Amino acid sequence: MVQRLLAPGEIESLDHNAIPRLLLPQARSLFPARAARLRQLAKNEIQGIPVGETLSGYLLLMAALVDAQTAAIRSLPEQTFALPDDADIALSLEHNMPPLPVSGARPPSWRSVFAALLDHLEPVAENQPQIAAVLAELRGLESAQLEGCADAVLSELTDGVNPLHAPFVAAALQVVWTMRASQLDAQRVQPLVTNTLCPVCGAHPVASVIRIGGQSQGYRYLQCSCCASEWHMVRVKCSCCEHTSKIAYQSLTPSDETTTAPEVVNKANDPSKVARAETCDDCHTYRKIFNQEHDYNVEPLADDLASLALDLLVGEAGYSRASGNPLLWFNAE
């Protein structure tokens, strides 16, 4: 058989199409893997992400919360996570809008997920009075207060939000959006006008990750803070302003290689490249990037939460965090 030679434009088109543009979450396995990673991090077992004793306790609490997310998925009926009408999804996609937007009305079923989370956390609170007090406060919230907190969480607003309540509300919303996102057809979801927001729900990414294996080998993805979908963005590009000229990398572990873009081919299992902050001198923001080439089990949200020391380092250098972590909130002060 004689094979036709491809023109340069055709080759570029094939290469582009070979990159999985959108990776939808596998919701039923994502949360157990995240909880396991949080416990590893809490035990300070991950090279490149040192965790102190103070943060360790919080990571264990968040691991219990993620366990509750898994339990809620298993205990609630499938209808809790039903997708919007197909006509509504089609209309959103037709106008290059996210099919499951975090803005606007949210499914009332999120309240069932929230209640289930609190129920599954009760055993954790039995010997921890402080956690029991927070759960009691959450159960006592009036409907308007709870919905207001959910509005603020999805809008990533810190003003007026109780930082002790927000992670639990965020966890419930994560379950709903992640379960719904997992049911979509990735081929139908269109990129947004800006590649810095999730094409599935429109939320900001929590961090980026370099994946390995299959067609994703070596490519960088941004992971959504709400629905955990991952979408492709080329490496050495600011995930906030999309500029490429002034990108640099900071890590907690010294490296023999330069931390200034462009990146070079790295040897595997280098702790200095497991967790890094990608800084941009155009917009003076940063977002962390985790590399599966150097730690197969990286989990963007968990690793971002555990690497607060890196936030402090980069913050002292004058950079602002591009977006927050839904499991850790600070008040306006």
Score class of each variant (00 low, 15 high):
302 A>S: 14
53 E>T: 15
128 Q>K: 10
148 G>L: 09
245 S>P: 01
329 W>H: 12
31 F>W: 09
261 A>L: 10
41 L>N: 05
325 N>Y: 10
113 V>P: 00
329 W>F: 15
167 P>T: 10
248 A>W: 07
236 V>N: 15
161 V>G: 05
140 G>D: 10
156 E>T: 14
73 I>M: 07
25 P>G: 11
80 T>M: 01
109 S>Y: 02
207 A>L: 10
153 V>Y: 03
57 G>S: 05
34 R>A: 14
174 Q>N: 14
106 R>Q: 07
325 N>P: 08
255 S>V: 07
295 D>H: 13
307 S>P: 09
93 L>H: 05
95 H>Y: 02
236 V>K: 06
332 A>G: 01
285 T>G: 01
165 H>T: 03
273 K>G: 00
69 Q>V: 05
22 L>M: 11
266 N>V: 09
307 S>K: 06
182 S>L: 03
215 Q>K: 11
203 A>W: 12
190 Q>N: 13
141 L>Q: 14
98 P>F: 07
276 R>S: 10
196 T>M: 09
284 H>C: 06
220 R>M: 04
300 P>C: 07
219 Y>Q: 10
206 V>E: 11
138 L>S: 04
267 K>M: 10
183 Q>D: 13
325 N>H: 14
117 L>P: 04
131 I>S: 01
313 L>K: 12
330 F>A: 08
238 C>F: 07
9 G>E: 15
46 I>T: 12
221 Y>N: 01
110 W>R: 03
268 A>V: 13
48 G>W: 11
265 V>G: 00
269 N>W: 03
134 V>W: 00
245 S>A: 15
41 L>T: 06
117 L>A: 03
172 A>L: 04
309 A>M: 10
313 L>T: 06
195 N>S: 13
78 E>M: 01
255 S>N: 11
266 N>M: 12
93 L>K: 06
35 A>F: 05
305 L>I: 08
248 A>R: 15
233 M>L: 15
322 A>E: 09
97 M>S: 11
279 T>G: 01
212 I>V: 11
82 A>H: 08
229 S>L: 02
83 L>H: 07
260 T>I: 15
305 L>A: 07
294 H>I: 08
234 V>P: 00
218 G>C: 05
287 R>E: 02
120 H>I: 03
315 G>F: 11
58 Y>I: 01
246 K>N: 08
83 L>V: 09
196 T>G: 01
213 G>Q: 08
98 P>Q: 05
321 R>W: 02
324 G>F: 06
179 M>E: 15
97 M>K: 14
254 P>Q: 10
327 L>F: 15
11 I>H: 07
186 A>W: 11
49 I>F: 03
332 A>T: 15
35 A>T: 08
219 Y>W: 09
296 Y>M: 06
